[in-house]
C-alpha cells in the first residue's frame, strides 16, 4: 500500500501515471478520487453524448464513439502542429472548442445524410456500429495503428499539492471543463425556451403534443445530434493529453458510455454525473489493486444494477 502506481492509461501509450507516497487511508482514498477525475469527466461527457440522443430523440446511435475517436486524433495532430511544446491555456481551449464544432458538424452530417433514414432501433444499432468501422478505417489510413501522443498540456500545466496529494493541474482542468459543459447543457435544457422544446419532444414529454404546438422535430433532432457530437469530440480532445490516441479506443468509449447509462438511467444529468464518479473511482481503485479486473468492474456494477433496478438507479421506465 505504501507505494501506489496509478495508471488509468490504456495499453500502448506513454507512461504518464505517477507515484504517490501516503500513509493514511484517507489520503489514499483522496488520491483515488483525484486520480479518478479524468476518467470521471471522460465518462460524464461520453455517457451524456449517448444519453442525450437516447433521451431527447428516442433514437439509438453509436456514432458518438467514432466522433470521439476523431476528436482525440485531431486534437493530438492540431495541438502538435500549432502549439508543439509552446503550450498556452487559451489556445488549447480554442483547439478544444474547434474540435467540438468539428464533432458537431460530423454528427449533423452523418445524421442528415444517413441516420435519418434508419427506421428501427435494431437497424440503427447495426448500421451505426458498422459506421464505427468506417471511422476507425479512416483513422487507420490517416494516422496508422501506432499510438500518437500530445502531452504538452498535461505536462506544462504543472502540479499542485492538495491535502497531501500531488495532483496534476490538468486533472482539475479536465474535470472543470467537463463540469462547465454539463452545467451549460443543464441551463440550456431547463432555463431557456429552446430547452423547453427539447424536453417537450423527449421521452418524458409528449411528442405529438409538441408538434401540435409548433416544435420543429427535425431541427430539435439535428441540434440534439450536434450537441452529442460536440460532447464526444471534446471528450476525445480532453482525454488525449493524458492517454494519447490509439487505434481501437472507441470500443472503450462505447462500453463505458453504455454501462453508465445502464447504471444511471436514461435522461438524468445528475444520474450520469454520479454514476461517472462511481464507475470512475471503482475503475481507478481496481486498476491499482487488481489490474486484471479493471474493465470487468464497470461491467459487474452494471450487471448488479440491472438485476436490482433494471431501469437504472436514477432512471424511469419509459414505454415507447
Amino acid at each position: 500500500m505504501a507505494q501506489t502506481i496509478i495508471n488509468v492509461v490504456p495499453e500502448g501509450t506513454p507512461p504518464v501515471g505517477h507515484i504517490f507516497e501516503s500513509q493514511q487511508m484517507l489520503s489514499t482514498f483522496l488520491s483515488y478520487i483525484f486520480n479518478a477525475l479524468p476518467m470521471v469527466s471522460y465518462i460524464i461527457m461520453l455517457s451524456f453524448s449517448l444519453n442525450f440522443i437516447l433521451y431527447i430523440s428516442g433514437r439509438v446511435s453509436l456514432t458518438f464513439a467514432g466522433i470521439y475517436l476523431v476528436g482525440a486524433y485531431v486534437t493530438v495532430s492540431v495541438g502538435t502542429y500549432f502549439l508543439g511544446q509552446n503550450f498556452s491555456l487559451l489556445s488549447f481551449i480554442a483547439i478544444l472548442l474547434a474540435v467540438g464544432l468539428l464533432g458537431a458538424a460530423i454528427s449533423i452530417v452523418v445524421y442528415a445524410t444517413f441516420e435519418r433514414f434508419l427506421k428501427t432501433d435494431v437497424h440503427r444499432m447495426i448500421a451505426t456500429s458498422s459506421l464505427l468501422m468506417v471511422f476507425s478505417g479512416i483513422i487507420k489510413i490517416q494516422w496508422g495503428t501506432t499510438p500518437v501522443t500530445y502531452s504538452a498540456p498535461f505536462l506544462k500545466m504543472g502540479i499542485s499539492e492538495v491535502l497531501g496529494n500531488i495532483v496534476p493541474n490538468y486533472y482539475f482542468f479536465m474535470f472543470g471543463f467537463s463540469l462547465i459543459l454539463m452545467l451549460a447543457l443543464a441551463y440550456f435544457l431547463f432555463r431557456t425556451a429552446w430547452g423547453l422544446r427539447f424536453r417537450a419532444t423527449s421521452l418524458d414529454g409528449d411528442r405529438t403534443m409538441a408538434q401540435v404546438c409548433g416544435v420543429n422535430q427535425n431541427i430539435v433532432t439535428a441540434i440534439t445530434f450536434a450537441i452529442s457530437g460536440m460532447l464526444a469530440a471534446i471528450a476525445g480532445g480532453l482525454y488525449a493529453p493524458i492517454a494519447g490516441a490509439s487505434y481501437g479506443i472507441e470500443g472503450n468509449a462505447l462500453l463505458l458510455a453504455a454501462l453508465t447509462i445502464i447504471v444511471g438511467g436514461v435522461g438524468s444529468i445528475g444520474g450520469a454525473v454520479l454514476t461517472a464518479f462511481i464507475i470512475g473511482i471503482a475503475r481507478v481503485i481496481t486498476a491499482v489493486e487488481m489490474p486484471l479486473f479493471e474493465l470487468a468492474i464497470p461491467f459487474i456494477i452494471a450487471s448488479a444494477v440491472l438485476v436490482v433496478r433494471p431501469y437504472g438507479i436514477w432512471g424511469k421506465e419509459f414505454k415507447h
Binding site: 444499432m125 462500453l255 470487468a296 461491467f299 452494471a302 440491472l306
Partner: peptide, 24 residues
C-alpha cells in the same frame, strides 16, 4: 444479467461482456 433488458441494452451488454473477456 444481459437478458434482463432487451433492445439497445441487450446489444451493448453483449459488447461489454466480450470486451471484459478480452481485457481479462
Amino acid at each position: 444479467f444481459i437478458m434482463k433488458r432487451t433492445g439497445f441494452y441487450f446489444a451493448v451488454m453483449g459488447i461489454a461482456v466480450t470486451m471484459v473477456f478480452w481485457s481479462l
